[in-house]
Design a protein around this nucleic acid. Structure first.
Lengths: 231, 231
DNA sequence: CGCGGCTTTGATGTTCATCAAGTAAAGTGG
DNA sequence: CCACTTTACTTGATGAACATCAAAGCCGCG
């Protein structure tokens, strides 16, 4: 973790389009006054469940996992998120403490604004508030939808689903490097590590995919889609 | 379903405290201009998945279920909600069409405002917008949390959990009338109808609960709590 | 009064978690 | 840099939890 002296102000930020199009230059300057940028290495913890929320965190670059410790000791991954669907927002306005933990899966750049100043901007700029509402709703909705979708499938369907998700939604490539371990895959799609491995092997033997450690190649996307849908 | 000629304006609404404390009288009058109140009988459909969203719906009285048709034919109940945690909000701002269906479980009174005028108010009143953000976040958060919590438990734990939830959170009474069928209970806590019935019977035989059709009496709350927690 | 949906119980089957045991890989300290 | 330890990965065998199937009674409703 490395705190970076912010270069330039929010006003000139090329990434503000992700969320901040409705803000005035004056507001951007105001937020910029309390701004920090923090760089997290792969594997570093960004947020710990139970910590008080004093910042409005915003993911500018990278890939993170949002997870929670279940009663049964086991971690459950709620979501894997990129900048556009940064999910810390769900906690930020619903509680005084973070409900989830967040860890960087790849090198990630987080922009940290002061929560109170953010609230001030919201109060003064309804147009921005409306955008934020839509943003939060979409993120929540995605989490809810995908959770139910995954739970509805058999194990083979879950593996197919998540492989296609990485391939199509995250890496836009038939060949990609899994950013998570087999164990974490299990925590994400609700199955044991052993079964993740077993079914990956089956898919390999059936010629659906190619495996080299964390590098996965999708060989038969059509059939994977079918398996993903058939439950 | 019965459309009621609204009596009085939003301004004098005794229930506005649920959400609208941050609105000015002028804004309330404005919204009131396009207001409808609709009364739904038990069992009537309030929202159908896929319908375009043109209103901002708000539950004033009653109990509803929010659900979705899974790929596997079976319905899944996402949430059962009362006025304070009305969940239509999740869809309202994340899409142009409703993502879920909503049906009344008890006689329910819904206030229907024009979505566009609501957006106008949000844009002009950031204070209200901030409240709405918090409201939506809390609702989403509850759905997400409880979904993962329930999935983490064994079948007996799920039944115990949901019985206690009805008893403590909804009806505030050891004896209550289930507002849903056994089948719907299964759809809510993700198990088959048969197993819902089986485990309810077990609990009855073990003296944990008393059953008379849809009327449930909790006899041993402590033990139920333990079963709910132990997975 | 008969039909369809809800409820109930029992018997059967299958999916999946758990347990066990071994190999490979990756981090840790002297 | 190498011994050491830990964590990740892999495969097979076993068992338990749960879904599915089947059959019958019940209730509400047209």
């Amino acid at each position: 973790m490395k705190i970076i002296q912010p270069t330039g102000s929010c006003k000139s930020c090329t990434l503000k389009s992700l969320l901040f199009t409705k803000m005035t230059d004056k507001e951007l300057e105001y937020l910029n006054g309390f701004r920090k940028e923090i760089l997290f290495e792969k594997g570093e913890s960004i947020i710990k469940e139970g910590t008080p929320i004093n910042e409005f965190l915003y993911l500018k670059k990278g890939l993170v996992k949002l997870y929670k410790f279940g009663a049964s000791q086991r971690e459950r991954i709620i979501s894997i998120a990129r900048p556009r669907d940064f999910v810390s927002l769900i906690s930020t306005f619903s509680s005084t403490k973070y409900q989830y933990s967040i860890t960087a899966l790849e090198e990630s750049l987080v922009c940290s604004l002061q929560l109170e100043s953010m609230k001030t901007v919201i109060r003064n700029n309804g147009g921005f508030a409306l955008e934020l509402i839509q943003h939060i709703s979409r993120s929540s909705n995605n989490v809810i939808q995908s959770t139910f979708e995954i739970d509805d499938k058999h194990l083979r369907g879950r593996i197919a689903y998540i492989l296609l998700w990485f391939s199509k939604k995250i890496y836009h490539n038939n060949i990609f490097t899994l950013p998570i371990s087999r164990k974490e895959m299990g925590e994400l799609i609700n199955m044991t590590t052993e079964n993740v491995i077993r079914i990956l092997s089956e898919f390999r033997k059936d010629g659906l995919i190619k495996i080299d450690g964390k590098v996965i190649g999708v060989l038969n996307q059509d059939l994977l889609e079918k398996i993903s849908k058939s439950g």
